[in-house]
Design a protein around this nucleic acid. Structure first.
Lengths: 341, 341
DNA sequence: AGAAATTAGTTAATCGATTAACTGCAATAA
DNA sequence: TTATTGCAGTTAATCGATTAACTAATTTCT
């Protein structure tokens, strides 16, 4: 089948040992091998179309130049974007990426970690699902380089993370909507098992209480599995209750929620203001331009790769990077009709 | 750092050779090793938390259980969906996926192929960009298992492909629009370097000529780099020219095109009917439900993996799988006002 | 009883590349 | 002249797992 050229082939061809060939092709031959021979070896390598066997290299060097990437779902817009940035940054450092999706399943996650380790990845970037603190502790205690992205596990100390300040992001959303005259906002979110989602909700709640003096801010939690069935009635009842702006906590929820507005021909922002978490190309086909919270996806990607590589290279200092978010204001949260200066 | 348990550790612990341990843990010990010893080895393996080193396994067995996946862009909806199906199917067969994006660049593609080969992937699933026929020939002639998806290279024979009939898909689009009373359709597509895109356009052209007796069917080609700038004027001039339906040839174009319709408040389908290629979750936030051509993404994913694995396992018969598409009819191409029975 | 077969293992080469430690030889220094 | 240094390589162990070929003891068959 596939008979690739090995160091030995080059060595045989030129009647030298494999050692010289290895030295030369790795440019570690100064003061060892004559320039003349080095040149001939390089030429022969090119002529035979030699490419090193990374598997053999890896076995010997204990480095695979491979990063494991574990996310919730590669087909999810948010992740596929981050993944692209991680891919690009990894390539810059000559690393490859092997990935897997958890679908937020603890079991799948643990399997994936084990698979990655069996394949001797040099490190792992992961968005861990709930209930996996023990795995993170295991990785940490075994000094396996990893970076937690997007998520937080406050119960696990001394780990490396890259993410955003979800509390603050939501707080800023409320500040924005208050500034634009909205008085009765609601948040629609997924049933919050994950800490960062809880933070996102807390930011909204606290800001609503503090800035709008709402005693019990409206936060609707919907289970992911029944999202598309339940969101319609929930949205309609929010409208009936006089909610003047809805804040969707993720892209996916936003799509479903906006679909309800379209279906019932609810005017945005006149009847209901809208703010979404995360950017989407698709927002532009909605009839009103959408205000959204923009996460620095590229930075999350590049910082996490850099951090991981620094860990791989022996850095032992736990570090958390918290990146800022931006509110990109558009018409869906434009100054409210009922507002008055 | 990371000191993983090896076969040797288990062997030392039990004062046996590594061979027995290997035999036992691979369940190849019937008639070789006593059941009693086998049990003790398995227990010890569990106790020491042994996991095999796949790098060593790979080097020895010439199999990495890894599939290389090369696509245009992982952050593109179409690919991220396919990738997810490929991931799932691969996992079923105990394969892992290592991937890379080409951005339709010939150089990046060739680099990626070389990287994959250096990493000794067992096979490659690829959506090759234009100008890479030579690489495909190289792979074919070196008997490196690979499956071409989505794209076609008619100049390269005897290769394995999984895709759809683009010509037919477009032809069916025209049949549909004719049945609904549209008379003057246009197609908006990307500048067509790629054969499958040319096919998509040809299907539209020929069907328009044959079914609508249009002498020179309107096919607007836009370069990807200037898509968002140019599409607006193009769409408006189509409207002015009395075009009654626009057929977008990809998801990305559709998003941009629909955005123009929203911006100018053009009524769909009254002023202009719409048909898109490919599904998108986001269509539901458009003010009219969208008619689209549905590709069998899951099948493309699973068939390509199965085909690749069959090649890896020694199958040498070139095979092309052409999957059917469906038109999912919605309001954006509903019977036209000017139409009459 | 002696040959053949079965059982229960061991030995050692191998996959491809790396690299510490060594060998000769020539040139330079003391 | 002898010792030291530099040059140009080679040798062989190693990474971890696999597996063909072997050994040695016991059992079965005729």
């Amino acid at each position: 089948m596939r008979k690739r050229i090995s160091l030995k082939d080059i060595a045989n061809e030129l009647q030298v040992s494999t050692a010289v060939v290895s030295y030369v092709l790795n440019n570690k031959y100064e003061g060892r091998i004559s320039e003349e021979k080095a040149v001939r070896i390089k030429e022969m390598a090119k002529q035979l179309n030699y490419f090193p066997n990374y598997i053999a290299k890896s076995l010997r060097k204990y480095k695979t130049l491979t990063i494991g990437l574990i996310i919730a779902d590669i087909s999810n817009l948010f992740y596929s974007n981050i993944v692209r940035y991680i891919e690009d940054e990894s390539k810059k450092h000559n690393y490859n990426v092997i990935f897997g999706s958890t679908d937020e399943s603890t079991d799948k996650f643990k399997d994936l970690v084990q698979v990655m380790l069996s394949r001797q990845v040099d490190g792992i970037i992961l968005a861990a699902p709930k209930g996996t603190a023990d795995t993170l502790v295991y990785l940490r205690d075994h000094h396996i380089p990893f970076v937690l992205i997007d998520r937080y596990f406050p119960s696990v100390s001394d780990i490396n993370t890259v993410g955003i300040n979800n509390y603050q992001a939501s707080y800023a959303v409320v500040e924005h909507l208050v500034a634009n005259g909205y008085k009765k906002p609601a948040m629609v979110t997924l049933s919050a098992d994950l800490f960062h989602m809880q933070e996102r909700a807390m930011g909204f709640k606290n800001a609503s209480m503090e800035l709008l003096e709402i005693k019990s801010p409206e936060v609707i939690e919907i289970k992911e599995e029944v999202l598309s069935e339940e969101i319609e009635s929930q949205m309609l009842s929010l409208l009936k209750d006089g909610i003047d702006l809805v804040y969707f906590s993720t892209n996916k929820i936003a799509m479903e929620g906006l679909a309800v507005l379209v279906k019932h021909n609810i005017k945005v922002p006149e009847e209901m203001g809208i703010i979404c978490f995360d950017e989407a190309d698709a927002y532009k086909i909605f009839n009103t331009s959408i205000t959204f919270v923009k996460q620095p996806l590229q930075q999350i990607g590049s910082e996490s790769v850099e951090m991981l590589i620094s860990l791989i290279n022996g850095n032992r200092f736990a570090k958390s990077i918290v990146l800022g978010t931006q509110i990109i204001a558009h018409n869906s949260s434009a100054p409210h009709k009922k507002s008055s200066k």
